[in-house]
């Protein structure tokens, strides 16, 4: 087997992560199609995350984006959700409301894509 072919094979072996993600994305909709006051299930990447200090109201607020747009994801009463960091890929599901004038899902169900270190 040539070195190049070896490399190709190894890359194929590493592919399953993507498959995991495709699996997770089944049944989600693009953010652009999300409607206010209806349930939605969207998949995307955490573009930004807002950390509140002690003095503020405990809230963890992030922006989840896919290729079509972004939506706020708000965890009320929490300062920290383990595993949610900038760049995390996740699927959220919940009722779409609003937060600070933007579409938002408050306290959604969420699934994180495992990151292999």
């Amino acid at each position: 087997m040539t070195p190049l072919a070896k490399l190709r094979k190894r890359r194929e072996e590493q592919e399953p992560e993507v498959d995991d993600w495709t699996e997770m994305c089944r049944g989600t909709m693009p953010v652009a199609d999300v409607e206010w006051r209806s349930r939605a299930r969207v998949a995307g990447r955490v573009r930004s995350l807002r950390v509140q200090p002690w003095a503020g109201v405990p809230t963890l607020e992030g922006t989840l984006v896919d290729d079509t747009g972004g939506i706020s994801v708000v965890f009320l009463g929490r300062r920290h959700v383990p595993g949610i960091r900038p760049g995390t890929q996740m699927v959220v599901e919940g009722m779409v409301g609003d937060h600070a004038g933007r579409l938002a899902i408050l306290n959604p169900d969420y699934r994180l894509l495992a990151v292999h270190e």
Binding site: R50, V51, Q52, P53, W54, P86, G87
Partner: peptide, 17 residues
């Protein structure tokens, strides 16, 4: 930031892949 929370304003972490 959570621990100290000095300045009472939020920190925004921005993804930068």
């Amino acid at each position: 930031w959570r621990r100290l929370g000095l300045s009472r304003f939020p920190l925004e972490l921005v993804d930068c892949p």
